[in-house]
Design a protein around this nucleic acid. Sequence first.
DNA 1: GTGATGGTGACCGTAGAATT
DNA 2: AATTCTACGGTCACCATCAC
Length: 293
Amino acid sequence: MGYLFTRLQLYELVWAEPISTLAKSLVISDVGLAKACRRGDIPLPPRGYWAKLNAGQRVDRTPLPLRAPGASDRVEVGVGVGRPRVFRQDVADTSVPDAAPPEPLVYGETLDAVEARIRLALPAKFRFVHKLDNAHPLIGRLLREDDARREAMAKNRYAWDKPRFESPFEQRRLVFLSNLFTLLAALDVRAWMRGREARELGLHIGDQHVELKIDTLASLRPRKGPPKKARGEPMAVEVRVARWKHDEREERLFWSDGDANRLENQLREIAVALVLTAERQYRKALQFSYDWA
DNA sequence: GTGATGGTGACCGTAGAATT
DNA sequence: AATTCTACGGTCACCATCAC
């Protein structure tokens, strides 16, 4: 049993009465309700707010911040993990006012505005770090695993498990990934990677999931251009924008080393595009469910 | 200061997902 | 199949803030 609110609905509720009393009418604990609000990036009244209000003092509401790119506008309250997600059906038979209606397709913000907001949110003075000594935790783990393999090789000449990230290209790739993940972490983006050579990459952005590939240009675009040997194997980044309809044209974003513009110099643009992709996916998903409602 | 109110953080059990 | 991981919500202790 749970409730589904839009962020604005829940915001109005938690600023209308203390969450401890609101929680009772929702049959959830106050702490659980507060956590749901935090998940939805909904500010709660500060300490002393209700006491001030009751004493007739002036109080100010903290405004509801804009929805983060790729994040859902819906907040679930009191729905356990894994259990069937409750969407609209149980709302009608509760005593809770203002239960969520089918969401209208109102975004309130153009994609251009979202992009501008992403640019502002990225740390202005981020510096690309070319060393791996303080790498992003995920990269650090790969490096430690490689160290272990290297040690095993030194101990036993017949060890078959060779280090995987020693070549100049792999090192460059890890440096790039570390910088990308670190930069995106400023926007609460969580990264994951898997596969023997960490070739599967993904990002959790808001409530969206964006997949990408970072590899040699030759492997991502096998037929394009003659291989350049000037500065080693060229690298490229590819992002697949999730499709929601089968007839939808497949959409990919692509960057690669240019003559003057290596990928390292495009890091910021790539980060912006990745987050914006999450927002676009969210809107497409919403449009999709709306069309089928 | 005192008592009331109410938000926060640490910790825990649970359950599904992921991994082996 | 057994395990580990992870996210969640609950309880509890704590403490910030208020009116008086």
